[in-house]
Amino acid sequence: MFRTRFTRRLPAAVAVAGLALAAAACGGGGESTSTGAEAAPSASAAQLNANADLSKQSLQVTVWDGYTPKELPDKVKQDLKVSNVKINLHATNEEAIAKLTASADSGIDVAFVSGQYAQALSEQGLLEPIHPELIPNLSNLYPEATQLSYDKGNKYSVPYTWGTTGICYRSDLVKAEPTSWNDILKPPAWAQKKVTMMTTERWLALPALKALGYSVNTDKDDEIAKAKELLTAAKPNLLGYDDTTFGDKLKSGEAVMVEAWDGWCPTTDPKKNIKFVVPKEGSDLWVDTMVIMKSSKNKEAAHALINYILDPKIHGWAAENINYKVPNKAAMDAVKVPEGSLLGIKPAELLNGESIRDLGEASTKYTRLSSEVTAK
C-alpha cells in the first residue's frame, strides 16, 4: 500500500502559480507580504469552540493512498462522534494543490501535503492557524518537530512523517563503503554503470549541491549552474535515474549504490546485505504534514481529527505499516523496530539535515535543471 513517492514531490513553482490564481479568484491582489508564521488569527479562528458538538460537523480529508489506516473514517466517527468522514485520495502534491485551489471552497477540511507545499499554501493565506488548545496531543511530538524551518512552532501545520535522503548500498558488493555524495557522482571504476540517482527535481540536485557545500534551498544561479555541471558529468557513469525501483535493483545486484529516501531503502531484507548512510556532506530533512484549510466549515472537527491522529496508537500505525518515522515520541517509543530498520534514526540526527523549503518562482530553476540533465 505504498504510494509512489516520486510523484509526491513536484515543482513548488507549479503549486505557487496555482495558489496565486486561486488568491486572485478570491479577490486577493498583489503579492503576499506575510507568511503563515506571521499571520494573525482570522476572524473565524476566534470563534472556534473547544466544546463544539462534533456530531453536527463532517470531515473531508485528502491524503495519499495507503498513508492512513483504512479504518480511520469509521474509528473517527465512532470515537469522536463526527457525523461523517470522507477520505479523498491524491497521487501527488501537485494534484492536492490543484484540488485545494480550484475554487474559494474546495470542500476539503484537512489536507496531507509535504512541508514546502504547506508553506506555499500558508503564504497565500489559505490555511487556518493551528489552535494548540484544541490539539492537546501536540505534547506527544518530539521537541525537534516544533523547530522545522518552514514552520517553526507548528503555526499552520502539524508534521505527520519525516525522514532524510542518503546512499543505499549493497555492503557485499561494494569494495569500499560509501561515505560521500561523490561516491555516486564520481563512482570508482567497479561501481560505474551500477549507480542510480533520482529525477525528482530537488532530489536530483541534492547530491551535487551538498557535495559542493551549497544549501539544498539555494536559488543562486551560479551555484545551480555548478551543480548542473557536476550532475552532467556524473550521467555517463550511471545505470540510470530511478525514483521507485532502486531497492529492487539493489536486491538483484544490478545496482550497488543508489540515492534513496531512508524509508525506501530495504535494510530489513532477510539477506541483511543492504545498508544506508547519510553522506558526510549532509543531506535533507523531508516532512509530510497535516493542514487545515481556512475555508473549512468544520474547523473544530478538523482539529479533533489531527489530535486523534497524534494519539500514539493511531500515529504509530504509519511507522509500523509504511516504514516512515513519525515525529511523535510517544508513538515511536511504542513501536517495535525491526532488525535493520531505519526507524531508529533519532530526531537529532534528522535535524542535521536541511528542511526543504518552498522557493516560489525560483523552483523553475530546478525544473529546468532536471529536464536538461536527464534529457537524452
Rank of each mutant, 00 (worst) to 15 (best):
R8W: 14
L10V: 14
V16H: 09
A17N: 14
A20C: 05
A24F: 02
G30N: 08
T35R: 04
G36V: 00
A37R: 04
A39Y: 03
S42E: 11
S42N: 10
A46K: 13
L54Y: 15
S55H: 08
K56Q: 11
D65M: 05
Y67K: 03
P73Q: 02
S83Q: 05
V85M: 01
K86R: 08
N88D: 09
N88V: 02
N93V: 06
A96V: 00
I97Q: 10
K99M: 15
A102F: 06
D105Q: 04
V110G: 08
V110C: 01
F112A: 02
G115A: 13
G115S: 14
Y117T: 14
G125F: 07
L127A: 13
I130T: 03
I135V: 04
L141T: 04
Q147I: 10
L148K: 12
G153Q: 05
K155M: 06
T161Y: 04
T164W: 01
T164H: 00
I167W: 00
K175F: 03
A176F: 13
A176Y: 12
T179L: 01
D183T: 06
K186P: 04
P187F: 00
P188N: 09
W190A: 10
W190N: 09
K193P: 09
K194L: 15
V195M: 01
T199G: 01
E201Q: 15
L204F: 06
A205P: 03
Y214K: 03
S215I: 13
N217E: 10
N217G: 07
T218D: 00
K220D: 03
D221L: 00
E223K: 15
A225I: 11
A227W: 10
E229Y: 13
L230T: 01
L231G: 04
T232S: 12
T232I: 01
G240N: 04
G240C: 12
F246N: 06
S252K: 00
E254W: 12
M257E: 11
W261H: 00
P266F: 03
F276S: 07
F276W: 08
W286Q: 11
M290E: 03
M293F: 08
S295P: 12
K297S: 05
E300G: 07
E300M: 11
A301W: 09
H303C: 02
I309C: 15
I309Q: 07
P312Y: 11
I314A: 13
W317L: 15
Y324W: 09
V326N: 10
K329I: 05
K329V: 02
M332L: 13
V335Y: 12
V337L: 08
E339R: 04
I345E: 03
E354R: 08
E354D: 09
S355C: 15
E361T: 15
A362N: 14
S363N: 15
T364Q: 11
T367W: 09
L369F: 11
L369M: 02
V373Q: 08
